[in-house]
Design a binder for these strands. Structure first.
Lengths: 104, 104
DNA sequence: TGCCCTTTTGACCAAATGGCAAAATTAACA
DNA sequence: TGTTAATTTTGCCATTTGGTCAAAAGGGCA
């Protein structure tokens, strides 16, 4: 593995790691429609607000989300809509696995 | 989050989590060309063979790889070639981020 | 200024993860 | 059968992660 490859895969894994949690996948999925503030997301997810806030900062640090303050609320949104492709891609992998199993 | 959503995102995160490590991304990338045995991969990755073996079993448990024993060697290969899309997808996200930064 | 609301942060614990080393497994072959 | 080579499993350690509580921070607004 060359140094350049190493750098490349480190950068990639940062993105992937940020998405590797059910709650964070849910958040990204929700933000595909429109921006949401922390308390809206907390209502949807059955979890502590501090936990949700932490998940959001993980996604923000990975460069997947951006935030914007409106009055008392912080609204999070997707920084690039192309994360949508990510989802269909993972779902495609899962679908192929199922076909494999059914094909036995 | 409904129970069904919860199940869905749990399944998805299992796949994503398995890919969320630089070494494992490298392995999947290498296996896109052709199957490789553990020692071949260990030669490419500067790491202990037991560590590489563990990474491989993580990917296998997530259903991303399959293995096949030939003589003394265990050859690993991709269970579905569509993981390739996964890569271009993540790279696309990274590219968009860079454009964002340069666009400031 | 002082109060309220939303969000973030720090401290802490439990669980999961990554890595190494040594032992166990498996197969080939003399 | 015994030896050797390749791989996997296991035990152990340090580090990271996810979660909760409580406290702090940051903005509105009276």
């Amino acid at each position: 593995m060359t140094q350049e490859e190493q750098r490349k895969f480190n950068v990639m894994s940062k993105i992937v790691k940020a998405m590797s949690h059910p709650t964070r996948l849910f958040i990204v999925d929700k933000l595909k429609e429109r921006k949401h503030c922390v308390c809206e997301l907390t209502d949807m997810i059955d979890s502590d607000i501090s936990t949700v806030s932490r998940h959001l900062s993980v996604l923000k640090n990975a460069g997947i989300l951006m935030d914007e303050k409106v009055k008392n609320n912080v609204y999070y949104s997707l920084r690039c809509p192309c994360v949508t492709d990510f989802f269909s891609c993972v779902i495609n992998i899962i679908r192929t696995q199922h076909e494999d199993v059914e094909g036995l």
